[in-house]
């Protein structure tokens, strides 16, 4: 069999981060992080709290420079925020004074896209992903799930190479969370995007990701990477969770995390 090398969209090479270096308050967040994100895949990152997941995202987004190593997107070193990645956080961060439409077009506006074109693209997203009729609504009149959908559309509108999902569903109730997990996964596939998902929820990581990366305690390193294969077609979150392989993956990853917890406890 011929092994086909997968296209790499994002690569972290020996990324290390130390805050307050050389002072008494020095904090070594992580050391020599290496991983690749392949085109079209979702990579989930899980780890104990305080392992620097958000810091890693800030580095990938170009908001923070690493102490050592570099992140490459499409072969180019990230050296500042350029809008090369789309960011989605736990908070929807919608601007309350803007309508749904104006929130979706925010990134395009910043980028200087022609307003008519921006509006057209946003309208397409809003129609495709179930918010038709809410274009002129203010965020305060939407439910948490709808708001998070709008935030996701704002991310998609820029057509970023890589989408960073920083615990985007953790503030939602369980049912809404399941529905959105399925939707976001499907949309990322349909649009052939690549994404990194940071989460505390092992189930969410398994249900959404193609591979799960486990970080160790601080100073964090990549502990292991598990390819996920549930043997289930489609994105139905319930069907995925019913798969026997789901539980197998869950146990393996859980124990991997657990060892870390007891080792430092």
């Amino acid at each position: 069999m011929v092994k086909i090398r997968k296209e790499v969209v994002l690569e972290a090479r020996d990324v290390s981060m130390t805050f307050n270096q050389g002072t008494e308050r020095e904090v070594n967040v992580f050391r020599g992080i290496n991983f690749e994100l392949h085109a079209g895949e979702i990579l989930a990152i899980i780890g104990p709290s305080g392992c620097g997941k958000s810091t890693l995202f800030n580095i990938i987004a170009g908001l923070l420079a690493p102490t050592a190593g570099a992140v490459h997107v499409d072969g180019e070193v990230v050296d500042g925020a350029r809008g090369h990645v789309g960011y989605m956080l736990q908070k929807d961060l919608l601007l309350p004074w803007r309508t749904v439409m104006e929130n979706v077009t925010l990134g395009l506006e910043v980028r200087g896209t022609d307003p008519a074109l921006a509006k057209e693209r946003a309208a397409g997203l809003i129609r495709s992903y179930g918010l038709a009729g809410f274009e002129e609504a203010k965020p305060s009149s939407l439910s948490g799930g709808m708001r998070q959908r709008v935030a996701f559309m704002r991310t998609l509108a820029l057509d970023p190479k890589v989408i960073l999902l920083d615990e985007p569903f953790s503030a939602l109730d369980f049912q809404t969370r399941l529905v959105l997990q399925g939707d976001v996964k499907r949309i990322i596939r349909d649009r052939n995007k690549s994404a990194i998902l940071v989460t505390h929820d092992i189930g969410e990581a398994i249900a959404m990701a193609d591979r799960v990366l486990v970080l160790s305690h601080r100073p964090s390193t990549v502990k292991s990477i598990y390819p996920i294969d549930l043997g289930v077609e489609g994105d139905d979150p319930i069907a995925l969770r019913r798969s026997s392989k789901f539980n197998e993956h869950f146990d393996v990853i859980w124990s991997d995390l657990d060892i870390q917890v007891s080792a430092t406890a």
Binding site: L63, Y87, L89, E109, V110, R111
Partner: peptide, 25 residues
Amino acid sequence: DPDLVKLMRSLGARRLTIWRKVIVP
């Protein structure tokens, strides 16, 4: 919200743009 500023920065917005679109409103 500092996260709003962060969001704008991740979109590639410069300080004056952030000021106009987020800080003033």
